[in-house]
């Protein structure tokens, strides 16, 4: 165990170093084409006003947001996969994103978007509504938090929200429509320090709770009843994991919109490489998800510079080949 522990620590340490290096690299590239020495000058307290604005107000918060949001989504994805015992589960499968989108799109189409902070707040409220609704439907259907019923409730609620979104979009004026579509595409462009701080304020404690649930989540992978017989308080574990992970998704979505693929692919990549022990899987997904979204967003803001690409496109374009590569290198799993 000590060896396993040391190996896990080494692996996580390696990931952390990679993530930090990637973050530093990401700060030095961008559409404005600042030379690296100037970026370094800014980071060490120098540089001219424009360079300072670009690096400190535009790039840095965005890089940090990518790390926090990407990490949060990947962890939530891993938790949903364990909770639903389904490798296809991803953070949005239980309708959280749909709820958030209904909230945001409603706020936008009702013309409330001009109130600062209202769209994220409405998204959070919508996501919260979805979270509660799904659990209540699942609970009403009989056995509380039965995995299949939970999944079914989530999918049904998600489909309903999609219909509501389409309805709202049909009734929206062009400007709201465009805003709503861009919102749903997901982007890290709105990053600022306040958004980063708010998100981190939630993500950090959420992670602590989820990592604390790592062992019971391991047990869930072999079945609810077996986990119960092994001494896990299954119902409570599922309830806490569901709420905390859903809120994690809600927080990320309310800030960045719906960015797909990270929550599906990162946990799988970690599983393929290092196995399914959640004590390693969750922190590794955090680092991997953060680094992956950072990479994708850096590509999104530089590849077509000075225009920006939707980051969700990059996460998919980058993620699929990476995943196929991983699959080919890990036969038998």
């Amino acid at each position: 165990m000590d060896m396993t522990l040391r190996r896990s620590a080494l692996r996580l340490g390696g990931r952390a170093v990679f993530t930090v290096v990637a973050a530093l690299a990401a700060i030095t590239v961008g559409a404005a084409g600042l030379p690296a020495p100037e970026v370094i000058a800014v980071l060490t307290g120098g540089g001219d006003a424009t360079a300072r604005t670009i690096v400190l107000e535009l790039r840095l918060p965005r890089v940090v947001l990518a790390l926090v949001a990407g990490g949060g989504l990947a962890v939530a994805g891993a938790v949903f996969q364990a909770l639903l015992r389904n490798p296809l589960a991803e953070p949005y499968v239980l309708g959280v994103a749909g709820g958030a989108a209904v909230g945001a799109v409603a706020a936008i189409t009702l013309g409330l978007a001009a109130v600062p902070g209202l769209v994220p707040a409405a998204a959070l409220a919508g996501a919260g509504g979805a979270i509660v609704l799904v659990v209540r439907i699942a609970a009403r259907a009989g056995r509380v938090l039965d995995t299949r019923i939970l999944l079914l409730a989530g999918v049904v609620v998600g489909a309903f929200f999609n219909a509501v979104i389409l309805l709202l979009l049909t009734l929206a004026d062009v400007e709201s429509f465009r805003s709503a579509v861009f919102w749903m595409m997901g982007s890290l462009a709105p990053a600022n320090w306040r958004a980063v701080a708010l998100l981190a304020l939630y993500v950090v404690p959420a992670l602590v709770v989820l990592v604390a649930l790592a062992r019971p989540l391991n047990l869930l992978a072999i079945g609810d009843e077996t986990a119960l017989f092994l001494g896990a308080r299954v119902h409570r574990v599922k309830l806490v994991a569901y709420f905390v992970a859903s809120l994690l998704v809600a927080a990320a979505v309310s800030v960045c919109g719906v960015i797909g693929f990270i929550g599906l692919i990162v946990p799988h990549a970690v599983r393929l490489a290092w196995g399914s022990d959640h004590r390693l899987l969750l922190p590794a997904s955090l680092l991997g998800g953060g680094a992956f979204l950072l990479l994708a967003d850096t590509a999104a803001r530089t590849m077509a510079a000075p225009a920006e690409l939707p980051v969700g496109v990059i996460t998919a374009l980058l993620g699929v080949p990476l995943f196929v590569l991983l699959l080919r290198r890990s036969p038998g799993l």
């Binding site: 961008g30 559409a31 510079a305 225009a307 920006e308 690409l309 939707p310």
Partner: peptide
């Protein structure tokens, strides 16, 4: 979807 840093 312009890059704001490019504009700046």
């Amino acid at each position: 979807t312009p890059s704001v840093e490019w504009l700046a």
